[in-house]
Design a protein around this nucleic acid. Sequence first.
DNA 1: AATCCACAGGAAGTGCTGGGCG
DNA 2: CGCCCAGCACTTCCTGTGGATT
Length: 394
Amino acid sequence: MSNIEEIFEKYISSRIFKDREKLLPDYVPRELPHRDNQIRRLATILAPALGGSRPSNVFIYGLTGTGKTAVTKYVLRKLYEKAKKKIEFTYVNCRQNDTSYRVLAELARSIGVRVPFTGLATSEVMKRFLDGLERKARILIVVLDEIDHLVKKHGDDVLYFLTRINEQLSRSRVTIIGITNDLKFMEFLDARVKSSLGEEELVFPPYTATELEDILRKRAEEALHSDVLHGGVIPTVAAIAARQNGDCRLALDLLLKAADIAERMGSPHITLDHVKLAQKEIERNLTIDVIKTMPLHVKLVLAAIYLLEDENYRMVTTGAIYNKYTDITRSLGVEPVTQRRVSDIINELDMLGLINAKVVSMGRYGRTKVISLSASKGSIREGLREDIFLANIL
DNA sequence: AATCCACAGGAAGTGCTGGGCG
DNA sequence: CGCCCAGCACTTCCTGTGGATT
């Protein structure tokens, strides 16, 4: 048997997986355990759409992996099945589409209006969206997921437009469902947008360890063969995820990775060791992936921080980083960016969770930021090394 | 109590890319 | 063709500030 056939054969005859897809992040199960309240509330709020009137706007808040997106998609799917034709819905992820233009373009596209991905004025896209909508005579439910990303970067222009859009429509109606994991986000909003978007509010509490266990058990039943899980695995995975704000997506991902590892190692069971390996792999992949896609100077600044930390520099401040960074650019023969820019890059790295930056005042000796690495040194090193250009300086 | 360091971080603008539209 | 648009990475210029030291 050839090598490749062996690989495929092994997969088909998997002793671990019954249906691997059931553990993938975008799979929405038939039942969403422990979210009955939220499902009922959202269904109640949206139900008027079936009678042809516009449902209230909804603002949904909950930490990552608490089922916000899954519940929303679940309820909307059911609603759509019931209503047919009269109702339409659109889902836009504002982390992927984090500018006013892109969000509007997505919305326009979803109702069948052709818009180029660049070139037009934003107001022109608004106009086309409005016209397209009016022609269709529908109730459109717009889901803006991770809405905080959009507002923090580009203000609430789009939201303002969307909350007032009904005043300009006579045959169609728009309802907005805003989803965020940042509660403070509401403070950024214009008062009118705030009151309009918050017509109804829905809170998703984190899952408890017991609830996570229950969810994992149900999902494992669908995805894995029986008896492949060693005792302890599910409680451990649940406990790890519970510590991470009850993040269900993390729990499922951890179980999937552990199963993958067990499979790869040819083990007939998933053990706690596989879970541990999976945990490391997740962290590692996450940091390597973000580093890979970073622009050059961001990588160089990260490299500077890495090197300072590596030589146990007493206190890693913005100034120290900038010096190290200019050293690096000089040795590579690259023009350095300004300190102002580096200051922003440090904030970006902080937001990505790769470093920890804290503003501190050292009295007479000024005010600065103290920085430390927060991701594992090894993963950062690996990530930076992916860039051939940087390999030598590490 | 006043000073003053070492930056923080806001505002506005530049130059470039990759596209409109008429 | 010429002029318009948005987005990005970055610059220039700038005002603000916590608190140890003078």
